[in-house]
């Protein structure tokens, strides 16, 4: 429960930092960024869930985060090149996982 609070705090801190730093991604990459965000959200929720379940592995979490973000963005890019809306696959996959993870986290938290 403390970890959950820390995570929310870090998220808010990150949002504040992001709003303060003068960085804006080029408009063309907004789409890839949004999919990357989805992947990152999935990773965080997945990691938190694993932590709650007690089978958390730091290496798996970090590599999973990086590869998920890159894969999602790469998939979207490839889809753009090919004219196939491949990013939809990433959105569906990560979206489903986000919901699953959220559901499990909710149950785990309620169980405690």
């Amino acid at each position: 429960m403390i970890l959950f609070g820390i995570l929310v705090f870090c998220l808010v801190l990150g949002i504040i930092i992001g709003l303060q730093i003068p960085i804006a991604i080029p408009i063309i990459y907004v789409q890839y960024m949004s999919i990357g965000i989805l992947a990152a959200l999935d990773s965080v929720l997945g990691g938190f869930r694993a932590h709650l379940e007690g089978n958390y592995d730091n290496v798996i979490f970090l590599t999973g985060f990086v590869t998920n973000v890159l894969l999602a963005a790469g998939l979207a890019y490839l889809g753009d090149r090919l004219g196939v809306e491949l990013y939809l696959a990433a959105i569906v996959a990560f979206g489903v996982r986000v919901f699953n993870n959220m559901a499990i986290i909710r149950r785990d938290l309620l169980k405690k």
């Binding site: 990150g14 992001g18 938190f48």
Partner: peptide, 19 residues
């Protein structure tokens, strides 16, 4: 790790918001 990643997520989110 979770904290750092969620920090990054927050930054990404806000940057995306801004854009």
């Amino acid at each position: 790790s979770l904290a750092v990643v969620s920090l990054i997520l927050g930054i990404m989110l806000s940057v995306q918001f801004k854009t």
